[in-house]
Design a protein around this nucleic acid. Sequence first.
DNA 1: GTCCTTCTATACGGTAGCGTATGGAAACAG
DNA 2: CTGTTTCCATACGCTACCGTATAGAAGGAC
Lengths: 182, 182
Amino acid sequence: MALTRTPRREWIDEGLRALAAGGPDAVRIEPLAQALGVTKGGFYWHFDDRRALLDEMLDTWERRSTDEVIERVESEGGDARAKARRAGALTFSSDGLLAIDLAVRDWSRREQTVADRLRRVDSRRMDYLRSLFGTFCTDEEDVEARCMLAFSLAIGNHFIAADHGARSRADVLELALRRLEA
Amino acid sequence: MALTRTPRREWIDEGLRALAAGGPDAVRIEPLAQALGVTKGGFYWHFDDRRALLDEMLDTWERRSTDEVIERVESEGGDARAKARRAGALTFSSDGLLAIDLAVRDWSRREQTVADRLRRVDSRRMDYLRSLFGTFCTDEEDVEARCMLAFSLAIGNHFIAADHGARSRADVLELALRRLEA
DNA sequence: GTCCTTCTATACGGTAGCGTATGGAAACAG
DNA sequence: CTGTTTCCATACGCTACCGTATAGAAGGAC
C-alpha cells in the first residue's frame, strides 16, 4: 500500500469548506483541485463523479455533528442545563461545523436525499435535547415546547439579522435562554 | 410608448421564482428566458446584466415583505396576539414569500449587500413585533426575549427537520406559541 | 401608410466546469 | 532492481451560460 498523497479525506474536507463558504453549487471539482494544489486527475480515481463526493461529504458531516458532539458533551459531565448549552455551543459555534450545518439546512430544501439526512440529524439532536430538558421539567408538553424553542433559537441566532436596539445579540440570547431554563 | 410584451416585472417575478426554488445560483438568464417563452434578447434591453436583475429582485422582495405585510396586518385589526400570528402567517406561510425569504436568508451569509438588506428587513419586522408584544407585556427585557424566541420559532419551523414523536409539528408550534403569549 | 420606440431572434466569441482517456511518476513490496 | 499499486498531469470533447452585436418584427403616434 503506497502513501496516499492527497487522500479521499482531503477532498472531502476541502469540499466541506467550499460547501460552508458557498453552498452546494460552490463545490466544484476543478477549483477544489486547485485549492489542494493538484489537478482533477486524482479526483476521478477516488470518486466516480461529483455526486459521489457530495454524498461522502454528507456522511462525514452527519457523523461529526451527532455522535461526536454528544460524546464530547457527555464526557465532560455537568448538569442538564450546562450540557444543553454546551451541545449548542459545540454544534453552533463558528468553528466550521456551524457554516456546514447552515448550508446543509438550506440545501435540504431542494434535495430530498439531503432533507432525509437532516431529518435524521435533527431528530437525533432533538431526542438528546428532550432527554436533557426532561431532567428538570416534568410536564411533557412543556418539555417539547422548550426543546423546539431552544433549537429554534440556536438556528434563528444565525439566520436572523435584526438589531435589538441598545442590547447586543448576546444579551438577548441570554435573556431568551433563561426564559427557557426557568 | 409601445406595449411591453414581456416587461421588467415578468423577468423579476420569474427570477424570484428561480431564487425560491434553487437559490441565487439558480437565477440564470437563459433558463429564465425559456420559462418566459422568449430568448434572452429582450433581457439585455431591460437590464445591464445578471447582477442588475438580482438587485431589482431584492428591491421587490424587500418591499413586499415589510411594508405590504405590515399594512395588510394592520388593516385587518384584532388584538396584538392575533396581529403577531397573522404577520407570521403572512410572511412565513408557503405562498411564495416564504421560500424567497429562506433563500435570501441563506444568500445573505455569502454576500454583504444581501446581508445589509436582510438586516433592514429583519430589524423592521422585529420592531413591529416588539410593538405588539409591548402591548401585553410590561417588562422590557422579557419583551425582547419573547420577540427573539417568536422570530426564531418562525424561522426554525422551516429550517428544522426534527420529528416530535407522537406530536405533529403544528401541535408543538402551538405549544411553543402559547408559552410565548402567556 | 410612415416613422419611432420597444422589444425579440439569432448568431457569435468567450469562460467554466464535467467526465474520459491515457501515459506516466512516485512510493512501496519483494 | 523489478513489478505493482496508487495517484497525478494533460489533453480532449461536451454542455451551459454570459454578454455583445445586429437585424428585424410589432405596436403606437401622426
